[in-house]
Structures are given as structure tokens and as C-alpha cells.
Design a protein around this nucleic acid. Structure first.
Length: 895
RNA sequence: GCCCGGGUGGUGAAACUGGUAGACACAAGAGACUUAAAAUCUCUCGCCGCAAGGUGUACGGGUUCGAUUCCCGUCCCGGGCACCA
């Protein structure tokens, strides 16, 4: 018999085996996904990257997780789809254009080219035939098409929206570009400005988006909760304060969830943009100045909410709807026009914000709800001695805010409502308001409609034509796509499209007259809200989606993986789009788009900067910085490697282009190979935990792979044998190893499949190989066991380190292909154990251990524990009061 | 400010449903092999203590036979806050 094979390399050389493995996968089409109704499908999707230039560690982490799950499920017999594409529109391309004088399109495509090659070098089992970039007209034409359908249904509409206006650059800025209230390039004070924008009616789906959250059992509870709070359903009362102004009877509407406190209203606050504020400012210059001041600064809610609360009286009074008492209207900078009616009733005694505002401006505080479970009726503890005397209670409000003031309780000081609890009071008050025609119970959502217009160039053109006689006219299907011109000049001042007559000059599709094309583009969240459906049919030139979506997305995408930072917006918009597309009749009722969600923790890194001219921060990459630490390892300072001069240490933040703190994985891959990079990042932390980047430990990951290689080399050189399939002929130590092997198989499958915690799976295989090293395996039975352990260990690790796995499995089982191997199956017979060890505690403290037969009953275990000399020593001769036996774990003796 | 997470050795972390705190690694130290270095192998490694033992999971309280895990409060760090993606 002549069987010639190339002898196995003694040394682990990742570059060689990775090239060979990737070539093999390419040639065999290992990652190609084809619809196959004979197998269960597994659509494994990782959030597609923005092509920012190079991969960063967050990408490596994200896509390795996806690849591990994809490969694991393929080994379990699933028909796996793992696609990849590019979220290619967005602001960074325009910023790069400004900084380096390159066209956004060219910059984007070249980044895609580089990053694709990086992804390929990591050996991900991606079906590249489904790749697309969202900046391609073949992709975005379909969202333009959908836009016109939604516009026709009224699900897209136009209204005024507030933006950040840079008065120097004459341009609209993103929130990220507003730093401390100033434009990032001009340094000018930013103003709020109202402009017409297109909105999507996501509020029409608020109820469905909320209730369907309950069905998302494959999502982290945390994300469901965040979405629930974001949608923010609240039930309360919408009511009006009537008033007379300029000879007309008017109503000032507000919404409250605390109608029970309505008798405690001492003033009303409206937003600076509220019509009543505008009216009052007409003959009040001071108020007009205040309103102008409120217009300064950015629109981001975080800024508004942390601002000092300021206000000014309008001099206008409205009538309390129940008492008729006159209540003054104030303008407050903390009241948001975009929430509800842009006006709130103020009850300083029971709302913390109102309380501080009232204290600041000496407005009356009128308590109407008893704090801390007090009751007028029963005088229940801890009531003051004389409960009929309410003065001591009111005196409580003289001091600081107390958390009890905001809690539901029994009403007092409220006339006919005295003694009612929260629910009864709200019911009674709502009824009385309704009788007067001044209000009713109402459900309100915090969720607002989604503004999708952007005054930017690098995005999907909005397919609308403005005609002087016909109004806004959607671009007809046969004129789609509206193609974004790719050769433009970016100046940073205003939208380039608005300066291109060749783009905006057009004819009205209805009347044929001269008209102007919309020059705003769509929010890039638009593209990422449906890309996951397009992966099923990227080649369809005649329809947005087709029946293949029904195959791959039935019951939802099986696994979605991406950063926790997308927990609200992207995931909510994607859920919304799926429902929209269902209602437009594009897809059947697929249900929720993502059946299982894994929210990856952020890869964070320290930030470093220097202040440039006019105080602008120039961010410096961590790779270019030396950090000085004290003896405890705490950073005390940092210097730039290039010049040795100090740089300022910023916070530790998610790796982002804007802070220049991304770490390029390429150096890691070049030095150690893709498998080490993959193994290391999976071993560093569980996937949902945030991970502060450090490459300490990479060496250890590489060492482990080298050791695995050597274990297989040694075994192969001694000669291959048939793998062991049962415990016959094994020594006790060998049986222990075989038990460990099969325990490890179960543990790793559970970690991959259920827990999605890969660091512990790797640790388990490390433990197994440590045990392997310590077991005598030179006899015939031992050699067969060695073969079984090595074959299994290689397959257990294959999803994480597929290149070395491909090579080693080929050596261990010549002629086979690791890509076609099934995941190792546990042999229950190998798990059997005669004796187990139990820990003995005395009063909850570990004092000893006993060995008992595996099937020992409770009484026998108790007896053995009480007889244990270590336990007796600590029982001090006292009798056991109680003995707690936790089967399989421990015995606790209480004395 | 509001919503959601997190805090365990020198470091990354483990402990899955309330049951042995620190698995598995990194770093460090000691030793073996080597002319030497690298690589590899062996041992030590939370803190206090010679030891017995005590103590320890951000901090303060609580529930429990037993708490890293559950509850209340405080502090610190991270994510999101609707135009970063």
C-alpha cells in the first residue's frame, strides 16, 4: 500500500495554513447559501459596517461572533446564510471630502475595497455573492420607490422640524457637530431653526411596536425595556385651561399623568416656541429677548435637559378648569414643544422640576397629596400626632425636595376629592373635566414621528419634485432612481445639491412645467432599516424584495448581532419598516424581523487629544501615544510618540472615527494570523460585555494555538488510529479524561448554542487539553482516546479558529473536510460517575469535603457530613440545629 | 437631567436557577533545560498571618441556613437621548 501525503509541518505557521484554508473554502463554495427546503434555515446577520476606512476591533468582535454562530449551526445541520454589505451613505464621507479633497463616492468605494479584503483575511464564512453597498442606485432606487408608496398612503408627510443652524457656515449641523453649543468648524453659536422636512408616521405603529416587544423572547430584556421606555406609553388626562385673549375664547391644552394633583396647580409653563409665548412676546421686549435666548444652542435633548431651568412670566392668565382660579402662564426653557402640546401644568408640591422652578421664582407651592402613606381617615403611622392639623404636613415643603412628595398617596387640600387615592382621584377629576367639556382621559406616547430629511449630499435623494402649480409631486416609477451625482465639490457650507441646477432643475411629472427637485437626502437609518431583507434577493432588478425573503426571513432572522449602541433607534426603525412593508403588501406577515438578538458590548479605548487653534480638539490615535503610569498602573500622563510632548487624556469611549481611538486589527492579523485575532477577542470577555481594548494576552492566544498544533503533530507522527468510541479497556485515569471530554462537548455546545458565551467555551477546551497532557495515553486504548480527544477538540474550536481547524482536522482524518464535519456528540455512557464529592459547610462556611456514592440518599449524606472530622472540629461539640443538603453540591450544618 | 447597563486579585475574567469566590488565561516571581538567548517545561501567586485561622466581590444597610447573585440607599464608570453610525 502506498499512501503518500505531504508530511505535516512541525511548526505552526498561520500565514500558510490560512491562505490554504481560505483558498479551499473559495474553491468549494463553502459559504455559498442556497435556498434548500430540506434543511432548517439559519440566517445569521451581523450589523453591516459603515466603510470608515479600516476595520476596528468592534468589527472583528462583531463578525467573529457571527461567524462562530454561523459555523456552529452549519455543523449542527442548518442551511446557513451569513451575508455582508456596506452601510455606505453618511456624514464621514463628506468630512473626509472636506479634509482630504476627495470625492465622497471614491473615498467610500476605496474604503469598501480595503475593508472587504480585511474581512476576507479573517476567514469569515460570508456569502460574498450577496454583497451590496447602500450607495448604489440599484439599492437605493427601491427605497425611493417605497418612499413614493408611503407618501401616497400618508405614512410620509411634510411638516416643520427644528435643526441646528450654523449662522457662519450657513449650514445645518448634526448634533455630533455641535460642541458646547457651537459649530465644530466655524465655532459660531448655533441657533435652532425651523425648516420643512419629511416625516415618517412611526407613531401610527406605536401600539404595535410596543405590544410586539412581548413576543421578542430572543432579545435581551434590557433592550426590550429600553424600547418600551422609548415608546413611552402613558395614560393620563389631556385637558385645557380656558382663557380670553384679544377678545377670543381660547383653550390652553396640556397633558398630565398626575391629574390627581390638578388642585395643586399654581402656574402653567409653555415652551418658548408655543403660540401663546409668541403672542405674549409681541408687547413684552424682555420676554421676546428670553425667547430669542431659548433659540440659541443645539437641539439635542441631552443639552436641553441639563440646562439651567429658566423661565419668565407672560402676564397672561388662564382659568383653572375646575376652580376657575386665575393661573399665570410662564415660558420655561425646559418645556419641549415637540412633546405633547408644548405646555405643562405645574404642580410644584408634587413634581421635582416644578418644585425647583417654583423655589427659584418664588411661585406658590400647594400640597394636595399626603406623603409617605399618611391618611386623613385613619391617621395611620407615621402620621403626626394630630392628623386633623394639616399645617405640619404643609410645612414639609418649606425645605428641600423629598422623594416622597412625588409618590402617589391620599388627596387632601382638594375639596370634594379629599381622601381619594390616585386611581379614584384621576377618575373623578377626568369625569368632572369631561362634563365641562374641558378634557378627557388619553393615552399618549413619548415616541415622535421620525424626521427623515437631511440637508446633506452623501445620501439617497428624496424622490419628490416641487411644482409651483401642482405642489409636491412624487417622482413616478419609470423615472426612478433619482441618481445622486457622484462628482461634486464639498465646501462644508450648505448642501452641494442645492447648488447644482443640473440636478434640481426638472419638469413637473404632472403638468410638465418647470419645477424644482428636492435636494434633501434621506436619513441613513433609512437604508439600514431594510437591508437585511434585500440580502435574500440582492440580484432582483425588477422588485424590492421577492419570495426568497419568505424563505430566509420566515419567523424572523435567526440571529442578529450588533452593538448595544443600536438598541433603540436602528432596531426600532427596522421593526417599523418590516411592518410598513407588510402593510404595503411587499412581504407577508413575517412577524418581527429579528427573532434572536445579541447585543455586543462596545469595544472601548482611551481617547487622547491636543487643543488646536480656537480651542478645537485634535484627536490622537492611542497607537501614537505613550502612556505613563504610576506604580499602581494608573495612567498619570501621556506623550505623543512623534514628538515626546504631552497630550491630554480624554475619557474611555467606544471606538469611533470622530474620536480617532479605533485600533486597527491589521497589525495583529499580520503578526499572529486571523485565528489568533479571532481566538483572542473571543477569549477576552463575554460578547455582551464592554471590552476595554488591550493587546496584553494576544501572545497567550497564539501560544495556545501553537500548543494545539504541537499536540496534533506529536500524535500524527506516532501514527493515526481509529478514535475511541466507548470506555472499554480504558484505565481509571483514561476514563476520567474521556468523561472530561464528553462533559466539555456538552459545555461547549451549550455555550455556543444557548449561552452565546465564547470565553468559557474556550476555557473549557483549554482545561480539557490540560487534562490530556496529564494523562498517560501511550497504550493502545490510550492512543485511541488521544485520537478521539484531538479530533473532538479541533472540531469544538473549529467555529472560532477555522483555519487551524481545517488543517488539523485534515491531518487527523485524512481525506475529510472540517467544513462538512458534524459537531461532536456527547456519549452519555462516558459521563457516568460512581462517586461524587460534596462540600461540607458549618454555618455557611466551608470546612471540609466528603466523598459519597453518586446515588446516596439524603440521610446517608447527612450522616457522612456529621461524621466528617473537619466539620466536627467547627461544631464545637454542639448539636446540629439544622442540616441543609443541596444535592450534588454541598451540605450545610447549622449549629 | 431622563432611560438602560456595569463595578470581583497586579490585569482580562469565571462562578449559568441563591449553594466551594477567583475556573481559564495574561503579567510577575522562583526553578529546570541551554554556552547563551528564544522557545518549552515545573512550581508560587487576593489580602493579613510563621501557622491555625481570619478576611475579601465599589460603599452602607436588609432578607436568608447560605448573597458576587435578591431588595433598599449611595458613589463611580459606560451606552442611548431622536441629525455619529
Amino acid at each position: 500500500m502506498i499512501f503518500q501525503r505531504k508530511p505535516m509541518q512541525d511548526k505552526y505557521i498561520p500565514a500558510d495554513i490560512e491562505r490554504a484554508a481560505q483558498q479551499h473554502w473559495d474553491q468549494t463554495g463553502a459559504a455559498r447559501a442556497v435556498e434548500d427546503h430540506a434543511k432548517p434555515k439559519y440566517y445569521c446577520l451581523s450589523m453591516f459596517p459603515y466603510p470608515s476606512g479600516k476595520l476596528h476591533m468592534g468589527h472583528v468582535r462583531n463578525y467573529t461572533i457571527g461567524d462562530v454562530l454561523s459555523r456552529f449551526h452549519a455543523m449542527q445541520g442548518y442551511n446557513v446564510l451569513q451575508p455582508m454589505g456596506w452601510d455606505a451613505f453618511g456624514m464621514p464621507a463628506e468630512n473626509a471630502a472636506l479634509a482630504n479633497n476627495v470625492a465622497p463616492a471614491g473615498w467610500t468605494y476605496s474604503n469598501i475595497g480595503y475593508m472587504k479584503q480585511q474581512l476576507q483575511s479573517l476567514g469569515f464564512a460570508i456569502d460574498w455573492q450577496r454583497e451590496f453597498a447602500t450607495c448604489a442606485p440599484e439599492y437605493y432606487r427601491w427605497e425611493q420607490w417605497l418612499f413614493t408608496r408611503l407618501y401616497a398612503k400618508g405614512l410620509v408627510y411634510k411638516k416643520l422640524g427644528t435643526v441646528n443652524w450654523d449662522p457662519v457656515d450657513h449650514t445645518v449641523l448634526a448634533n455630533e457637530q455641535v460642541i458646547d453649543g457651537r459649530g465644530w468648524r466655524s465655532g459660531a453659536l448655533i441657533e435652532k431653526r425651523e425648516i420643512p422636512m419629511y416625516y415618517m408616521k412611526i407613531t401610527a405603529y406605536a401600539e404595535e411596536l410596543l405590544t410586539e416587544l412581548d413576543k421578542l423572547t430572543g432579545w435581551p430584556e434590557q433592550v426590550r425595556l429600553m424600547q418600551k421606555n422609548w415608546i413611552g406609553k402613558s395614560t393620563g388626562v389631556r385637558f385645557a385651561f380656558p382663557y380670553e385673549l384679544d377678545g377670543r375664547q381660547e383653550k390652553l391644552w396640556v397633558f398630565t399623568t398626575r391629574a390627581d394633583t390638578i388642585m395643586g396647580v399654581t402656574f402653567v409653563a409653555v415652551a418658548a416656541e408655543h403660540p401663546l409665548a409668541t403672542r405674549a412676546a409681541q408687547d413684552n421686549p424682555e420676554l421676546a429677548a428670553f425667547i430669542a435666548e431659548c433659540k440659541q444652542g443645539g437641539v439635542a435633548e441631552a443639552n436641553l435637559a441639563t440646562m439651567e431651568k429658566k423661565g419668565l412670566p407672560t402676564g397672561i392668565f388662564v382659568a383653572h378648569p375646575l376652580t376657575g382660579e386665575q393661573v399665570e402662564v410662564w415660558v420655561g426653557n425646559y418645556v419641549l414643544m415637540s412633546y405633547g402640546d408644548g405646555a405643562v401644568m405645574a404642580v410644584p408640591a408634587h413634581d421635582e422640576r416644578d418644585f425647583h422652578f417654583a423655589k427659584k421664582y418664588n411661585l406658590p407651592i400647594k400640597p394636595v397629596v399626603l406623603p409617605g402613606g399618611l391618611s386623613l381617615k385613619t391617621g395611620s403611622t407615621p402620621a403626626p400626632a394630630d392628623v386633623s392639623d394639616v399645617r405640619p404636613i404643609e410645612h414639609l415643603w418649606a425645605g428641600e425636595w423629598n422623594i416622597d412628595f412625588g409618590i402617589h398617596g391620599e388627596l387632601f387640600n382638594s375639596g370634594k376629592y379629599d381622601g381619594l387615592n390616585y386611581e379614584a382621584a384621576v377618575d373623578a377629576i377626568a369625569t368632572d373635566l369631561a362634563t365641562k367639556g374641558l378634557g378627557e382621559k388619553k393615552t399618549q406616547f413619548r415616541l415622535r414621528d421620525w424626521g427623515i430629511s437631511r440637508q446633506r449630499y452623501w445620501g439617497c435623494p428624496i424622490p419628490i419634485i416641487h411644482c409651483p402649480s401642482c405642489g409636491d409631486v412624487p417622482v413616478p416609477d419609470e423615472k426612478l432612481p433619482v441618481v445622486l451625482p457622484e462628482n461634486v465639490e464639498i465646501t462644508g457650507a450648505g448642501s452641494p445639491l442645492a447648488k447644482m441646477p443640473e440636478f434640481y432643475e426638472c419638469q413637473c411629472p404632472k403638468c410638465g412645467g418647470n419645477a424644482r427637485r428636492e435636494t434633501d437626502t434621506l436619513d441613513t437609518f433609512f437604508e439600514s432599516s431594510w437591508y437585511f431583507l434585500r440580502y435574500a434577493c440582492p440580484d432582483n432588478a425588477t422588485a424590492m424584495v421577492d419570495e426568497r425573503v419568505g424563505y430566509w426571513c420566515k419567523g424572523g432572522i435567526d440571529q442578529y448581532i450588533g452593538g448595544i449602541e443600536h438598541a433603540i433607534l436602528h432596531l426600532l426603525y427596522s421593526r417599523f419598516f418590516t411592518k410598513l412593508m407588510r402593510d404595503v403588501g411587499l412581504i407577508g406577515d413575517l412577524g418581527e424581523p429579528f427573532a434572536n438578538l445579541l447585543t455586543q458590548g462596545m469595544v472601548v479605548a482611551p481617547t487622547f487629544y491636543r487643543e488646536g487653534e480656537n480651542g478645537k480638539k485634535l484627536w490622537i490615535n492611542p497607537a501614537d501615544v505613550d502612556v505613563v503610569t504610576d506604580e499602581r498602573g494608573r495612567p498619570t500622563g501621556a506623550t505623543l510618540k512623534a514628538d515626546g510632548q504631552p497630550v491630554t487624556i480624554g475619557g474611555t469611549e467606544k471606538m469611533a472615527k470622530s474620536k480617532n481611538n479605533g485600533v486597527d486589527p491589521q497589525a495583529l492579523i499580520d503578526q499572529y494570523g486571523a485565528d489568533t485575532a479571532r481566538l483572542f477577542i473571543m477569549f477576552a470577555a463575554p460578547p455582551d460585555q464592554s471590552l476595554e481594548w488591550s493587546d496584553a494576552g494576544v501572545e497567550g492566544a497564539f501560544r495556545f494555538l501553537r500548543r494545539l498544533w504541537k499536540l496534533v503533530v506529536d500524535h500524527v507522527q506516532a501514527g493515526l488510529v481509529t478514535a475511541c468510541t466507548n470506555n472499554d479497556g480504558l484505565s481509571a485515569a483514561q476514563a476520567d479524561l474521556r468523561r472530561k471530554l464528553h462533559q466539555t462537548m456538552g459545555k461547549v455546545a451549550d455555550d455556543y448554542g444557548r449561552r452565546k458565551q465564547f470565553n468559557t467555551a474556550i476555557a473549557a477546551v483549554m482545561e480539557l487539553l490540560n487534562a490530556y497532557d496529564k494523562t498517560h495515553l501511550t497504550d493502545t486504548a490510550g492512543r485511541a482516546l488521544a485520537q478521539e480527544v484531538l479530533e473532538s477538540a479541533v472540531l469544538l474550536l473549529f467555529p472560532i479558529v477555522p483555519h487551524i481547524g481545517q488543517a488539523l482536522y485534515g491531518e487527523l482524518t485524512p481525506g475529510s473536510d472540517a467544513c462538512r464535519a458534524a459537531f461532536p456528540k456527547v456519549d452519555p455512557a462516558a459521563l457516568k460517575q460512581d462517586e461524587i464529592e460534596l462540600v461540607v459547610q458549618v454555618n455557611g462556611k466551608l470546612r471540609g469535603a466528603i466523598r459519597v456514592p453518586a446515588g446516596a440518599d439524603k440521610a446517608a449524606i447527612e450522616a457522612a457530613a456529621l461524621a466528617n472530622p473537619d466539620a466536627q472540629k467547627f461544631m464545637d461539640g454542639k448539636p446540629a440545629k439544622k442540616v441543609v443538603v443541596v444535592p450534588g453540591r454541598l451540605v450545610n450544618i447549622v449549629v
